[in-house]
């Protein structure tokens, strides 16, 4: 994770875990399959691109105490572009790509609080990283985002839930050189099914949109949209 220092994240995580709140402690571990496609626009006069194969696998761990929650999530996967791929807008100039594979990873460290009975606000320290496998070039951005999440129980087992948020940050290359600004937004709408008190499955739609404004005037926009399916196990503490 070149753009996020673990020695910054760890104290934040420990701090959030040690906050004085009330009972109802639980640890939630989850796995996720994300059948997303990666499609986007390399900017004016450049090609659009659309992945032919790909998807993401995610792991998450969260801890909640009463109305407070915190956790981390890592999602990543490889995408194959048989035709045009996302252009590398780097400090060395733009490099158009075709027939390539690109890795895309998202790391989130967040903390949230239910300010209303069914609605929470959360802060997300997010890092996005892409790696072009033809030449090993990497770039990404990290920044602090804010989001809102909510749910509505449908019956004893099913719960409709969703979240929406935005992140802004600086695009950096692997040598840590800043080459522009980036932002992303994410929308999740899903259904959670409680198999019992500890085991849950969930499915829904996840849409992530990214906008990269490079200092040299180029702009790239893309989205990762698709269905997800996940399983979560809850440990009461």
């Amino acid at each position: 994770m070149p753009f996020l220092k673990i020695n910054t994240l760890l104290p934040l995580l420990l701090l959030s875990l040690s906050m004085p709140v009330y009972a109802q402690n639980s640890l939630n571990l989850g796995v996720l399959l994300n059948a997303t496609g990666w499609r986007g626009d390399n900017g004016a006069g450049n090609s659009d691109f659309n992945s032919d194969k790909g998807g993401q696998f995610g792991l998450s761990a969260s801890f909640s105490r009463d109305k407070f929650y915190t956790g981390l999530s890592l999602q990543g996967g490889e995408y194959t572009f048989d035709n045009s791929g996302p252009t590398q807008f780097s400090s060395g100039g733009a490099v158009s790509t075709t027939s390539i594979k690109v890795e895309h990873n998202d790391f989130d460290l967040l903390a949230g609080y239910y300010f209303w009975p069914q609605v929470s606000l959360f802060l997300d320290l997010k890092s996005v990283n892409s790696r072009w496998k033809n030449n090993g070039y990497e770039q990404g951005f990290s920044g602090l985002g804010i989001g809102v999440a909510g749910y509505n129980p449908l019956n004893d087992n099913w719960t409709l839930y969703g979240s929406l948020g935005f992140v802004g940050g600086t695009i950096k290359e692997e040598n840590n050189a800043a080459i522009g600004d980036a932002g992303s937004s994410a929308l999740i709408v899903g259904f959670n099914y409680a198999l019992d008190g500890h085991n849950h499955i969930n499915l829904g739609l996840k849409s992530r949109n990214y906008v990269f404004d490079y200092d040299d005037g180029n702009q790239q926009e893309y989205s990762l949209n698709g269905l997800f399916f996940g399983y979560n196990h809850v440990f009461g503490l």
Binding site: Q24, S26, N28, G30, L32, S60, S62, S64, D66, K67, Y69, G71, S73, Q75, D106, D108, L110, G112, Y114, S120, F122, D124, K126, G145, G147, A149, Y151, P153, D156, T159, Y161, S163, G165, F166, V167, S184, S185, A186, I188, G190, N192, A194, H200, N202, R208, G230, N232, V234
Partner: peptide, 17 residues
Amino acid sequence: RFSPGEAVQPHLPMPTL
């Protein structure tokens, strides 16, 4: 309906951006 012993919030996947 009642939900004995249930947490204040249901156990949902963590939201991410």
